[in-house]
């Protein structure tokens, strides 16, 4: 069983195998990285309905372009190994007893460390500047990444409850609407909260996701850039009809928005009077049970 399989020891075969693997990997990269960036890339969601979703789309393309060489390296290496280093026939032969080489290990560690630090820096840069404003994610009551002139952003309170979304407009007399209509090219500040259990406000095409948690005011910023509709879903399991907690929002021009909100104020006037005063969080009695 233990015939030592050291057929040609020394640097010769190592260098030859290594060079072959590198060449195959390089060729594969030349073929596949452009395909990922320019063929697959444009189809990676969430597209470009807002500044935030455009950023996320770009991040996804960049990460895919970075992941492809790593994926190819492992695949090429494993593919080459299991093809070339296989033992044919039933006999069992031992391979050369190669010990771990500290130089290779240190090089590998250094390379992965550099990649990781680069990724972390890239992710942070995509998050913090005022143009990114938290990349569309919920940031809690005191957001760190704010758009320029955050105070003048259009405030929209998103209220989740089992199993529907409502939207309250503190800048327009605290009117509450069952639909979401947003003006284009203007910073929006979503204040997301919940009346019962935890939900997650996911405006898919806008690239916004913020958990709606009772007792918490979760702020997310977005700047829509296209006139279009977008889907709103719940992304946190909230009970029986979680999958049906959908609605559609609309991005319109500033003037169309002004008209819409004025009509809404009139139409929901009676309801607005019955509502509790506007607040960042609400505490309804928690005694009702739901599936």
């Amino acid at each position: 069983m233990s015939a030592v399989g050291a057929m040609t020891d020394g640097a010769g075969p190592d260098v030859r195998h290594g060079r072959r693997i590198l060449i195959i990997w390089a060729v594969a990269n030349v073929i596949f990285v452009p395909i990922v960036i320019w063929v697959l890339g444009p189809h990676i969601p969430p597209y470009d309905a807002s500044q935030q979703s455009t950023d996320q789309h770009n991040v996804n393309v960049v990460l895919s372009a970075l992941a492809t060489p790593v994926l190819l390296m492992i695949w090429v290496y494993f593919g080459y190994s299991i093809t070339v280093f296989r033992q044919r026939g039933p006999e069992v032969v031992d391979g050369p007893p190669i010990e771990g080489d500290p130089r290779i290990q240190v090089t590998w560690l250094a390379a992965t460390t550099v990649i990781v630090i680069a990724l972390a820096v890239y992710g942070t840069v995509g998050l913090l500047p005022s143009s990114a404003a938290g990349a569309g994610g919920g940031q809690g009551p005191n957001p760190l990444s704010k758009p320029p002139n955050a105070a003048s952003a259009l405030q929209v309170q998103v209220i989740g409850q089992q199993w529907l979304w409502t939207f309250r407009w503190p800048g327009y007399g605290g009117v509450q609407t069952p639909y979401l209509v947003l003006p284009v090219n203007r910073w929006i500040a979503f204040h997301v909260t919940s009346l019962d259990v935890s939900h997650s406000f996911w405006a898919y095409e806008l690239g916004v996701k913020a958990d709606a948690i009772p007792g918490n005011d979760n702020v997310a910023f977005v700047r829509p850039t296209q006139l279009r509709s977008f889907q709103i879903r719940c992304a946190e399991l909230c009970g029986l009809w979680h999958g049906h907690m959908n609605t559609t929002g609309q991005i319109v021009s500033q003037s169309a928005f002004d008209t819409w909100i004025a009509q809404a104020r009139v139409r929901y006037q009676g309801v607005t009077q019955q509502l509790p005063p506007y607040s960042h969080v609400y505490y309804p009695a928690p005694d009702q049970r739901a599936g």
Binding site: Q56, V59, G126, G137, K209
Partner: peptide
């Protein structure tokens, strides 16, 4: 997992 760990990308992929 790298996509999920990256916050901007995570905004889309979280909970999906």
């Amino acid at each position: 997992g790298v996509y999920l760990s990256d916050v901007p990308s995570n905004v889309t992929t979280h909970g999906s």
